[in-house]
Simulated scan of single mutants.
Amino acid sequence: MSGRRERAARVAALRAAYREELAEGTAVFFEPRAHSCPWCGSGRLGGRLRTTDLLQHKPGEFALDRCHDCGHVFQNPRLSERGLAFYYRDFYDGLGEERLDGVFAGRTASYRARAESVRPHLAGPAEWLDVGTGHGHFCATAAELLPDVAFDGLDRSDGAELAELAGRVRRGHRGTFAELAEKAPGSYDVVSMFHYLEHAPDPLAELEAAYAVLRPGGLLVVDVPDPESRWARLLGRWWLPWLQPQHLHLAPAGNLRRRLVESGFTVLAQEHAPAHDAVDLVAAAWLALDAVAPREDLPWLPEPPGPARRALRGAALLAGVPLLLAATVLDRAVAGPVAERWGLTNAYRLVARRAAPPDGAAATAGR
């Protein structure tokens, strides 16, 4: 069976289950609306963005609010556990697993840059936990650069277990970070959260888990989208890092720095250009092009597209190739230091050290 026919058969097999789940509408996927900021508690909130699911095109509308006091941006109303399960389904797993696995596998340069940001702060052999590891591609790449580091991965999906089977991590833990921190406190010298914290319903609890699972003097490295990026304002709903409905919280760098200090960390580095992924314009162009083109066959749609719609979609995407190429060139032209100087970086990275014991023991001393 060809790849297209195989996918069509998988979509058809899922359609009835999606139809049943959507029978009650999308309101059942949300918690009650919040009236205070989940980061600082202020009640001074304002609407930041309203959008739809621009990647999977699942039904529903999503709103992001901004706190006028601390600048925190968060989804409001927020998805419930049922909603998170619905919107994540077939994105990283199922129908989307093969496509996303290929995307993540091709990001070797980005993974090496992440490891390079931490290497100057390592003092010897270390045990590293990558939270939200997916299929462990970062760990496999970083292990080549840091041969004295043993990498474990944690993920709520079966990705971590698959990463262990593939030999990309020493151990793959499946579950929540809070559960692992409770079972294994003080077990790691390094914890990484690369584009994970924005997905967490309670990011402050995730920082507490990081503190708990780290040994005294251990390192925490966090990459998150920067809601203060100029691209966020210039591109509006087409800015990829909004990533609705998956991204629940986007914290400005100052907020996260202060919270880390209050939680017992010392911030060692704040990086913008090294964390930047130069895809803002090409991603916006693709999202806009995909939005106007007829939909591909998806199980949450009432019926599969006919031959005419499929042909029209193919023609629309083909016509958009010059736009995508031009956007790619422009992205690369404003990458690196240029993007940071103009406030166009789309993410930032913080490296912090958990408070050491009174005797000043080294952060990642060999054992």
Results as ranks from 00 to 15, higher is better:
214 L>R: 13
73 V>E: 01
209 A>H: 04
142 A>R: 13
126 A>H: 14
148 D>Y: 05
118 V>I: 01
41 G>R: 06
109 A>R: 00
80 S>D: 01
113 A>F: 13
166 A>M: 10
245 P>Y: 04
258 R>D: 09
83 G>C: 04
203 P>L: 06
212 A>P: 15
70 C>S: 01
304 P>Q: 00
99 R>W: 14
193 M>S: 05
177 F>E: 03
75 Q>V: 10
48 R>T: 14
177 F>M: 08
214 L>K: 14
28 V>A: 09
246 Q>R: 15
340 E>G: 02
161 E>R: 00
113 A>E: 15
42 S>L: 01
144 E>Q: 09
200 A>D: 11
244 Q>K: 10
220 L>D: 06
189 D>Q: 01
115 A>H: 12
270 Q>M: 15
121 H>D: 08
77 P>H: 00
229 S>P: 05
40 C>P: 13
339 A>G: 05
152 D>S: 12
10 R>I: 10
182 E>C: 15
129 L>C: 05
178 A>T: 10
248 L>M: 11
78 R>S: 14
104 F>A: 10
32 P>Q: 03
222 V>W: 07
136 G>I: 01
312 L>P: 11
286 W>L: 08
316 A>F: 09
279 V>S: 13
223 D>C: 04
287 L>T: 08
201 P>A: 00
32 P>A: 07
33 R>K: 06
187 S>F: 14
39 W>P: 08
59 P>D: 01
134 G>L: 11
252 P>D: 11
46 G>F: 03
117 S>W: 08
112 R>W: 15
73 V>F: 04
312 L>H: 08
361 A>T: 13
361 A>M: 10
78 R>W: 02
255 N>T: 08
130 D>A: 13
107 R>D: 11
303 E>K: 04
278 A>F: 04
332 R>L: 14
213 V>F: 12
295 R>N: 13
258 R>E: 10
245 P>R: 06
31 E>Q: 07
48 R>A: 12
312 L>M: 10
70 C>K: 06
150 A>C: 15
266 T>Q: 13
227 P>G: 12
16 A>S: 00
88 Y>W: 10
167 G>Y: 02
157 S>H: 07
276 H>W: 06
106 G>Y: 14
287 L>D: 03
152 D>C: 10
83 G>D: 03
154 L>K: 00
95 L>F: 07
157 S>N: 04
131 V>P: 12
174 R>Y: 07
95 L>M: 10
286 W>P: 09
30 F>L: 06
132 G>S: 02
53 D>M: 02
349 R>S: 07
259 R>L: 12
336 G>P: 11
141 T>W: 15
145 L>A: 09
113 A>I: 14
343 G>R: 00
128 W>Y: 11
66 R>D: 11
47 G>V: 15
51 T>Q: 11
28 V>P: 12
169 V>C: 06
121 H>W: 06
85 A>G: 07
195 H>Q: 14
27 A>V: 13
79 L>T: 02
304 P>H: 01
337 P>I: 00
349 R>Y: 04
72 H>I: 00
263 S>K: 06
276 H>S: 05
65 D>M: 04
338 V>E: 13
293 A>S: 01
157 S>Y: 08
162 L>Q: 08
356 A>W: 09
118 V>C: 04
326 A>M: 06
269 A>D: 14
199 H>M: 09
311 A>H: 05
256 L>M: 02
226 D>V: 02
